[in-house]
């Protein structure tokens, strides 16, 4: 007994406790990397974009014209790019939201269990298709379709981009909306059914309103994803930096501008800094959408 006491405690126990403390620190360090990365993202975006704020000044960004390379006067107005992103995103959401919510209702409330087991993973395949592959499909299949349907000279339009983006947003919004629908307490649904409401009345007047905050948050997260999407819109929207509200004209989004031009600008030039400012605008928009969506989820107790 004595022997055990002497060998066990003095030798191994301190070592164990030191390991324990060390691991805690190490794991905490790993968890903190996320904070570090977020800080570094903001820091480096501002570092690279910085000098533009003093010369030529941030006011230059408020222009509507984006003409980064010119013999007379370069112009770095993000107006047309913002409107391009807004147009494509709005169109995409117009298509995506009704479809996704209806499909989520079907999967969550109507489909039989076996059917659900097939539908969920199959639609999730859509989310794992790389955006460049979807863009390629859009270029060869969707664009000609849009061109033929509307009798246009080119199929590379805001609408084409929006259709592809909605393909990307649909699985995200379906899956999050379905979570929201499923998390509505059974008591509510049962109460409605017990009062004599039909299945559909229960779905549209009880379950759907109860799940609405979760669906709103899902849509906001979807918008964040759509605004930030790069490759598909770069490939199919035609890349014309013009201020327009027509779904059938070519547009250029903020993301596509960065992707298309960053490869060709001299590092540190005014054009280069302007592209980083576009990145900052994107970051701020998606950051704000994310925070608000989380607030909504938290407020209505839908946080998992």
């Amino acid at each position: 007994m004595n022997k055990l006491k002497n060998t066990f405690y003095p030798l191994t126990a301190p070592k164990l406790f030191i390991t324990d403390k060390l691991m805690r620190l190490l794991l905490m360090g790993a968890a903190s990397t996320s904070v570090l990365v977020v800080c570094l993202i903001f820091l480096f975006l501002f570092k690279e974009a910085g000098p533009f704020a003093f010369k030529p000044g941030l006011g230059k960004l408020l222009d509507s014209q984006w003409i980064p390379v010119s013999f007379q006067q370069e112009r770095f107005g993000v107006g047309s790019l913002l409107s391009g992103s807004a147009l494509v995103t709005a169109l995409a959401m117009l298509v995506t939201v009704p479809i996704s919510v209806l499909v989520a209702i079907y999967i969550a409330e109507i489909a039989r269990p076996g059917e659900r087991e097939f539908l969920k993973p199959f639609i999730e395949i859509l989310a794992s298709i790389p955006s460049v592959v979807l863009g390629f499909f859009g270029l060869l299949v969707v664009a000609p379709l849009v061109k033929a349907t509307f009798g246009l000279s080119t199929g590379l339009t805001a609408l084409t981009g929006a259709l592809l983006l909605s393909l990307m947003a649909i699985p995200t919004i379906i899956s999050l909306s379905e979570d929201a629908l499923v998390s509505v307490p059974y008591a509510l649904k049962n109460a409605s059914l017990a009062l004599g409401a039909s299945q559909l009345q229960t779905i549209f007047r009880v379950t759907l309103p109860a799940a609405l905050p979760g669906i709103v948050a899902a849509v906001m997260l979807g918008i964040g994803r759509v605004i930030g999407e790069t490759m598909a819109v770069l490939m199919v929207t035609g890349n014309a930096a013009i201020l327009t509200a027509s779904p059938l004209s070519s547009v250029r989004t903020m993301t596509a501008t960065i992707a298309a031009e960053m490869g060709e600008v001299p590092f540190g030039s005014i054009h280069y800094q302007a592209l980083f400012w576009i990145g900052i605008i994107l970051l701020v928009i998606t950051f704000a959408l994310n925070i608000v969506a989380q607030r909504v989820l938290k407020k209505y107790g839908m946080m998992k």
Binding site: S34, V37, V38, L40, I41, F44, L45, K47, E48, L221, G224, R225, I227, G228, E229, T230, T255, I258, A259, M262, L275, F276, G279, L282, L283, T286, F287, L289, N290, I291, Q294
Partner: peptide
């Protein structure tokens, strides 16, 4: 949560910087 929402092209800019 913030990292999960950062657009991929912004990660590209960050990596470049």
């Amino acid at each position: 949560i913030t990292l999960a929402g950062v657009p991929s092209i912004v990660f590209g800019l960050f990596g470049l910087g």
